[in-house]
């Protein structure tokens, strides 16, 4: 079981991710934007972070850039949720320190397989 943080301004997305991963037996926490994600990540050590790119207050790229600066999160896998049209965001995400990305739309099965890829 891993502790996972999902950061997304869309509640339905968060709920979907959170439900799917909880079903896998993981302990999932949700945050509504990068700022809150950062706060959550600093109070709990997560094993994996899944973050959206476009969010109010603090977007995903800034969030990842900031979280990577934290010693505790230097090696933590971070996956970004991107859309097929947001190719440039993948580069930006990688630049900021993301481990990989999940292309939206995705179904729960896809999410499970990609999460398994980073969590052994």
């Amino acid at each position: 079981m891993a502790k996972i943080l999902t950061v997304d301004d869309s509640g339905s997305m968060r709920a979907m991710v959170s439900h799917t991963l909880s079903e896998m037996g993981h302990d999932v926490e949700e945050a509504e934007n990068g700022q809150l994600g950062l706060e959550a990540a600093l109070s709990t050590q997560f094993d994996l972070i899944i973050s959206d790119v476009n969010m109010p207050v603090m977007d995903g790229i800034t969030f990842v850039t900031n979280i990577r600066k934290e010693a505790n999160y230097r090696f933590t896998p971070i996956l970004m949720l991107t859309t097929e049209s947001g190719q440039d965001k993948k580069g930006a995400g990688k630049q900021a320190g993301a481990t990989g990305w999940i292309v939206k739309p995705f179904n729960p099965q896809k999410l499970v397989s990609l999460v398994n890829k980073v969590l052994k």
Partner: peptide, 8 residues
């Protein structure tokens, strides 16, 4: 540093 683990 991007949280990737080559062995994976």
């Amino acid at each position: 540093l991007s949280g990737n683990e080559p062995l994976r």
